[in-house]
Simulated assay, not measured.
Amino acid sequence: MRSWLPAACLYLLLASTVQADEPIVLTVVDGALPKSLTGTAGNADAGRKVFLTRTLGNCLACHQVSSLKSEEFHGELGPSLDGVAGRYTEAQLRLIVADPKRVFDDTVMPAFYRNEGLSRVRPEFVGKPILTAAQVEDVVVFLETLK
């Protein structure tokens, strides 16, 4: 009986610390997310990196950006992002990146900052957003440079 006791204690400890992620709640006001997800402004250079990195945002796979013409494989599925900062406010861009279906009903763009109500999610990613709140803020600041 004593031989299984340490194993049982370890199991209970692990079981009590592994919890489902809390649902991400986005407070949308007039079709936008007016408040920063982190409470601070993002970094445009970091946002550019997220935008281009295939394992993160991978935005260039679907969108074209003239100022990034040196980068390969611009997509044509989504609209060009040239001038996007003139078409949308910072708060609107934040919602578009975080949860685009709240803005565009028929978009195939993934929700980058949502962790529930999604379909076809690989088991290791269930309950986790694609980007962190800080990465969303970084991408938003980068998109604001595209005037």
Rank of each mutant, 00 (worst) to 15 (best):
D106P: 05
R2G: 10
A32E: 07
G57C: 03
K35H: 15
P110H: 03
L5Y: 10
T27M: 13
Q135S: 06
L52M: 09
R114S: 08
V136Y: 04
A91N: 12
P123E: 08
S66L: 06
T53L: 14
V121P: 12
A7C: 11
S119M: 15
L52H: 06
L56Q: 11
P6T: 03
Q19M: 14
F112K: 06
V25E: 11
L81Q: 03
E22V: 13
A44G: 02
V97W: 00
A41E: 07
E90G: 14
A111K: 02
L5K: 14
V25H: 13
G75Q: 05
G86A: 14
H63T: 04
D30H: 14
V136M: 11
Q92W: 09
T89F: 11
M109T: 01
E72N: 15
V121D: 10
G78V: 02
Q64V: 08
H63R: 10
Y113W: 05
L60N: 07
K49V: 08
S70G: 07
E90T: 14
P6K: 07
E71N: 05
T107F: 00
I96Q: 01
V103M: 05
H63G: 03
T55Y: 09
V103T: 12
C9E: 11
G83N: 10
Y113A: 03
L146R: 12
T145R: 11
Y88W: 15
V103F: 04
D45L: 13
K128I: 03
Q135Y: 02
M109S: 01
E72R: 15
A133E: 03
V139H: 00
V121L: 14
A41H: 09
L60S: 07
L56Y: 09
T107P: 01
L146P: 11
G86T: 13
P34M: 13
Q64G: 09
A98I: 04
V108N: 05
L12M: 07
E22W: 14
D30W: 13
L81E: 01
G117A: 07
F51L: 04
E90C: 14
R120A: 11
F51D: 00
G47D: 01
A7V: 10
L12R: 10
L10R: 08
A44M: 04
A15G: 09
A32M: 09
V126N: 11
S67R: 11
R87F: 14
F73T: 12
V140N: 00
G39P: 00
D138R: 04
A133G: 08
G39R: 06
P110F: 02
E90H: 15
L26D: 02
G117W: 04
R102K: 13
G127S: 12
P79W: 00
A32I: 06
A15P: 06
R87K: 15
A41T: 08
N115Q: 10
Q92Y: 11
P23E: 11
G75V: 06
E137D: 08
L68Y: 01
D30L: 13
E116K: 13
